[in-house]
Design a protein around this nucleic acid. Structure first.
Length: 403
DNA sequence: TCTGGGGTCCTAGGACCC
DNA sequence: TCTGGGGTCCTAGGACCC
């Protein structure tokens, strides 16, 4: 989709049509950036990822619209549903991009007219402009779709890569970001063609890593997967929520409050999709941009707000140094599972009678205090002793909760 | 002029097992 | 006191994408 977020806003509110608009969160936040800009705003130099204040300076009458992710998801759902009427082989790549395998839908010489129909339909039915690439594999289709914007359709045959793909600067290649660009330049690779004809694979592997080297080299030569994976529709693997502060945060109480709010939102989204998670990550970004992440994994998955907040609070207490100002706090839930697919794992401990439990506890304490625990003890942990029975009974419930 | 928020995937290193 | 070679799984960090 072309400038998807901005297009959705215009589709929803036609009075914005033809105007210079940009989508940006809390525009008065000095750290806010542009997420999408309409084609009317672009001649003024307004670009996505640009700070809102810069955009406003370049284009004083720019209309800033607050993003509504719900609206964009809704449009996304609609046009993917439309794609599924054309073929079941649809692989979503992001909220506004996807691959369609049309091999069995039409003859090769009909692909172009099918693309034209799709483009017109999306414009008519949803007021959404898009660009389309037609190619023998996903990488080439992706590169082709980027060649003409907005409302472009580009066919990229494998035999055309020499004149259409190879002259492009290497940073325009999908998969090459800032770091890889810098590395590739040091070994003399400036264009996609340079990479395609690079004859020292060992060196390439050494500088950008084996997987990256193999895949980028193969893509540059016009090869790549043509497998369109329709299962991606159900394949969400994480849900996260983070916030960059308007000003660096120094107050620990505020930090904890933010963690609570972020956790709330995250859990609501999990419950909306009926997800539970096995793994939770707390992310801190310091004012110097250094980031730290700490995670905790569970035996049984959960989406319980209070429980998850407690996990994050413990991580925070354990790892935050109580002094460094923070720029961002983020939380995420990983290793998601649909609640209906959950398999409960019970502790063997639960099934023991009290005498067996007593024996197991004695045995555990003995182990911890001897060989197995040597490393822990060396680090200054006090010797572990058993509490009196009545005390243990009192704590029995919370012990069980903690498994 | 300091640089968002949502994701995915890969890798190095460590714990642990046989 | 030092110590192999095969493997799996987990965590933290980083690169990339839109």
């Amino acid at each position: 989709m072309n400038c998807f977020f901005a297009s959705c806003e215009i589709a929803q509110n036609p009075s914005l049509k033809g105007k210079k608009i940009a989508v940006a969160p809390n525009a008065n936040n000095r750290r806010g950036i542009i997420l999408a800009a309409s084609y009317e705003a672009r001649p003024y130099g307004v670009r996505s990822a640009m700070r809102v204040s810069d955009a406003q300076r370049k284009c004083p009458d720019l209309i800033i619209v607050e993003p509504s992710m719900g609206l964009y998801s809704e449009y996304s759902r609609k046009f993917f549903e439309y794609f599924l009427k054309i073929t079941p082989l649809v692989e979503p790549a992001s909220i506004d991009e996807g691959y369609l395998d049309i091999t069995d839908v039409c003859k090769p010489d009909e692909a172009l007219s099918l693309a034209e129909k799709i483009q017109q339909d999306l414009l008519r039915q949803f007021s959404l402009p898009c660009s389309i690439g037609i190619a023998p594999n996903k990488f080439l289709a992706k590169m082709a779709s980027d060649m003409k914007k907005p409302l472009g359709i580009t066919v990229l045959r494998k035999r055309e890569i020499r004149e259409k793909l190879w002259p492009l600067p290497i940073q325009e290649m999908y998969g090459v970001g800032k770091k890889t660009l810098a590395t590739l330049l040091t070994i003399g690779i400036k264009t996609i063609g340079d990479l395609a004809n690079f004859n020292n694979m060992e060196l390439l592997k050494e500088v950008i890593g084996e997987t990256n080297a193999v895949s980028l080299y193969s893509h540059a030569n016009g090869n790549g997967s043509n497998e369109v994976d329709a299962n991606r529709f159900n394949d969400v693997s994480s849900i996260s929520n983070s916030q960059t502060f308007d000003h660096d945060e120094y107050d620990v109480n505020n930090m904890k409050l933010i963690i609570k709010l972020l956790t709330n939102t995250m859990c609501n989204r999990m419950e909306k999709h009926n997800f539970k998670a096995y793994n939770f990550v707390l992310q801190l970004k310091y004012s110097n941009f250094k980031t730290m992440s700490k995670s905790v994994s569970m035996v049984n998955p959960t989406s319980d707000n209070r429980r998850i907040y407690k996990l994050f609070e413990n991580l925070f207490d354990e790892f935050y140094d109580d002094a460094s100002p923070l720029r961002l706090i983020g939380v995420s839930a990983n290793k998601l599972i649909e609640a209906k697919d959950e398999i409960k794992q019970f502790s063997i401990f639960d099934s023991l009678d009290s005498e067996q439990k007593e024996y197991q506890i004695d045995h555990l304490i003995k182990s911890i205090n001897s060989d197995i625990g040597m490393n822990i003890l060396k680090k200054g942990m006090p010797k572990i002793t058993k509490t009196k029975n009545e005390k243990f009974d009192k704590f029995d419930k919370s012990w069980r909760d903690k498994k």
